[in-house]
Amino acid sequence: MSTPRTDGPPARIALVVGADAADRALVAGLLRLTGWDVREAAGTRDALRLARRSDPDLVVTDLDGPAGEGPALLRRLRLVGCRAHLLAVTADADAQDRAAALEAGALACLPKPVHAGLLLGLLGRRASGPPASGAGDPSTEDVDAELMDRLQQLYATALPGRLTAISDGARTGDAAALARASATLAGTSAQLGHPEVAAVCRAIAQDARRGVLAHELVVELRTVAGA
């Protein structure tokens, strides 16, 4: 079995796996906000294909699917030579699934919705080496306030570009791009204490997935975001 990387520069390629697009967008958005190059997969087949192609440094997989599928994916990733650090997320997986994920090599099993500081703080503490003894369910009490301040600064810096991507998707009629961009901003906004921005972004994404370009909501978003 291959082991995670323990030397060299910080990991920068991440693969986020899960059937729910909104859940994926939340985690992917947080990682992109801090400089990760993120790929997304809706299921096991796509995840294995992307893992072979991109050789990720981090894989975050959702356990809230068919019984045993999440831990099985982690084991298969190792079998195909994936050396990434592995994380699992879940809203309601039972103790057996959580234990199976850890046994399959996950550094930890995080609760959903994923807390921004908890995820990034965990990566900062543990992703440079093997999991600490007893790793599994870290607490939000461990989150560094300085990290959250940095996330807010990164959010503010990235916001104009995120808004431009949403506006461009609506202007060019690219519903898929509009849905992706608005879902990503919805996830990070919800996590970092901007619920009004998150709500408008979710509405834009929902319409875009139905092929509706909600131009009036895009205008409203800029107002709500203070742009």
Rank of each mutant, 00 (worst) to 15 (best):
E141M: 11
A99D: 12
A214R: 02
E69N: 10
D94Y: 11
S182C: 04
A100R: 05
L107C: 06
G136V: 06
H194V: 04
R12F: 10
A19K: 09
V114M: 03
A25V: 02
S189L: 07
G68W: 07
A72P: 00
R83M: 07
L26D: 05
C109Q: 08
A127I: 00
L122C: 03
H115F: 09
G193D: 03
D137P: 10
A177N: 08
P4Y: 03
C109R: 01
T34Y: 09
A199W: 02
L192W: 02
L73W: 07
G8F: 10
R150A: 14
S182V: 03
V212L: 13
G117F: 07
A84N: 06
E141Y: 12
D57W: 11
A67C: 09
P4N: 05
Q152A: 15
L221F: 04
A11N: 05
L217S: 06
E216L: 14
G193C: 04
V17R: 01
R53E: 13
L30D: 02
R171V: 07
A106T: 01
G226V: 11
A183V: 00
C109D: 08
P160Y: 12
G117P: 02
D137W: 13
G43N: 14
Q96C: 09
R78V: 02
A106G: 00
L73Q: 05
M1H: 12
P130N: 09
A28R: 00
R39N: 11
A14H: 06
R39S: 13
A227E: 10
A190M: 09
A104P: 01
A145P: 15
L154D: 10
A47R: 05
A170P: 00
A42T: 12
R125G: 06
A199R: 14
